[in-house]
């Protein structure tokens, strides 16, 4: 941690942002033609791709299907070229399994699965470039893909990371800030109702700062939801213009 100042005296971070500034978010939906829904999202330098298939009949063992709602099947993987060192095991290791499990639980809460009994919805997410905030980029990309596929959801699911340095909460951490050893909190939020779908925090933080940290993460998520909203509306307008003429 020596030499890297996460927050300078003037309040600037390593990449020149202010404490509560988010990185630049760019996204596109319907990038794949054959999938039911797909989205590509860039959050700063983190690039994530999400593809949704479904709802369709439960493949494989029929015993996995639930009689009253759909099963959501998630797979999270990182491309071998996504990190500085080549990843030898893109999926199947514990971290990826845990992330897949969390994604599955997050979306099971957000998608109206009761409308599709005995069927399966597949969500595949891949990180093409990892620069901090992997989980958040996945959740955001998967949300866009689900909206693109026309699967009914309660609300958008937006996720963002937040950190804490010298009594100031930072929003949207990059890789250097995450691995610097300070606190990092990942939060998935349904912005309109303010419900937290997933909360994950590592590294030490005093209990009194928890409130401020969660607040910062929630504000960042709400800001992010506006960006996603714009992307979806723009896409809808584009499509409608094409079909009207």
């Amino acid at each position: 941690m020596a030499g890297l100042e996460l927050l300078s005296d003037q309040g600037y971070r390593l990449d020149g942002r202010k404490a509560t500034e988010l990185r630049k978010v760019q996204a596109r939906t319907s990038v794949f033609a054959q999938a039911d829904g797909s989205a590509y999202l860039e959050q700063g330098n983190t690039k994530a791709l999400a593809v949704v298939y479904g709802p369709h009949e439960t493949r494989g063992s029929r015993s996995k299907s639930l009689h009253d709602r759909a099963v959501i099947n998630c797979q999270f993987s990182m491309a071998t070229f996504s990190t500085a060192e080549r990843k030898r095991r893109p999926h199947g290791d514990r971290k990826s399994s845990e992330m897949s499990l969390h994604l599955k639980q997050t979306f099971e809460a957000a998608v109206l699965t009761e409308l599709y009994p005995r069927s399966q919805i597949d969500i595949y997410v891949k990180i093409l470039q990892a620069d901090g905030g992997n989980y958040s980029a996945c959740v955001n990309a998967a949300t866009l893909a689900l909206v693109d596929a026309g699967i009914p959801m309660r609300d958008y699911v937006c996720a963002c990371t937040a950190g804490f340095v010298e009594d100031t909460p930072l929003a949207d951490l990059c890789h250097a800030e995450e691995s610097g050893g300070g606190t990092s909190l990942a939060l998935a939020l349904l912005p309109r109702s303010g419900n937290i779908a997933l909360l994950q925090m590592d590294a030490r933080l005093h209990q009194d700062h928890l409130d401020a940290l969660i607040e910062a993460a929630m504000t960042a998520c709400k800001g992010l939801s506006k960006v996603l909203d714009d992307v979806v509306r723009q896409h809808l307008e584009e499509v409608s213009v094409l079909t009207r003429d």
Binding site: Q105, A109, N195, I196, L199, D202, A203, H206, Q207
Partner: peptide, 17 residues
């Protein structure tokens, strides 16, 4: 010392702050 070392929510529940 009242320092939080990790928080993890699972199961897909909706929590309030």
């Amino acid at each position: 010392h009242r320092e939080i070392c990790s928080i993890q929510s699972s199961g897909g529940i909706m929590l309030l702050k």
